[in-house]
Amino acid sequence: MSEVILSVRNLTANVDGQQILKGVNLEVKAGEIHAIMGRNGSGKSTFSKVLTGHPDYEVTGGEVIYKGENLLEKEPHERSLAGVFLAFQYPLEIPGVSNLEFLRVAYNARRKYQGLEEIDTFDFEDLIEEKLSVVSMNPSFLERSLNEGFSGGEKKRNEILQMALLEPTLGILDEIDSGLDIDALKIVSHGVNTIANSDNAFILITHYQRLLDYIQPHFVHVMYDGKIVKSGGKELALELETTGYDFLDEQQLVEVGV
């Protein structure tokens, strides 16, 4: 049996005093790919932000154990160094910070944490050249400011490039498919499939079954009103595609009625 990477129990969290997560349970093992689907506002993105420690999100209950440790006690950068990676739904544009410099600083922070020697600019350039091919990115992107003036697809590819470089144990992809045309979607998916192996795990947050044609999940979960209300195999995604989420409202009504 493979190692449990992430174990979430009864996780509740608030944003601006409003409860968004109302008891999330999830277990992710090495080698697994999980997809979380659900409507806008169901708590999917909040869940990803809570896992990575965004300061605007307040955890009010439950626990998150990552590789045997309490993840919630860690600072955002410590979570990253420990191997948790969030590919942002809306990657930020940071003018003046060169993409190459940023990637090198991030990579070296990881090396240092692992007790390895930091690598210099020249060696890093060789390494990054190799990683660029994972997402078919033009090296000219490295010279530009971080995400500044990048198209939607370029930003997402840059997220996957960072992921390829940092080689996370747990990759969380928040709507990596939103705003992508089919070619970009194929490139991004290819990137994720290249990185995925039996030692790491991924959580894909998405609205669309389309992404799951390219990245095959082992499990699909449906989030509704701050909870995971239904789990299944990848056929669940296909079912949702045809039925939509309305059945959840009905189900909810029944529960309330009882």
Binding site: H77, F88, L92, I94, A109, Q162
Partner: peptide, 23 residues
Amino acid sequence: DELFYLRSRGLSEDQARNLLLDA
């Protein structure tokens, strides 16, 4: 949000702050 983005890539608060100030 810029600080969080940088921190989510393993940069400490000081490193993230300095990178933004340098920029």
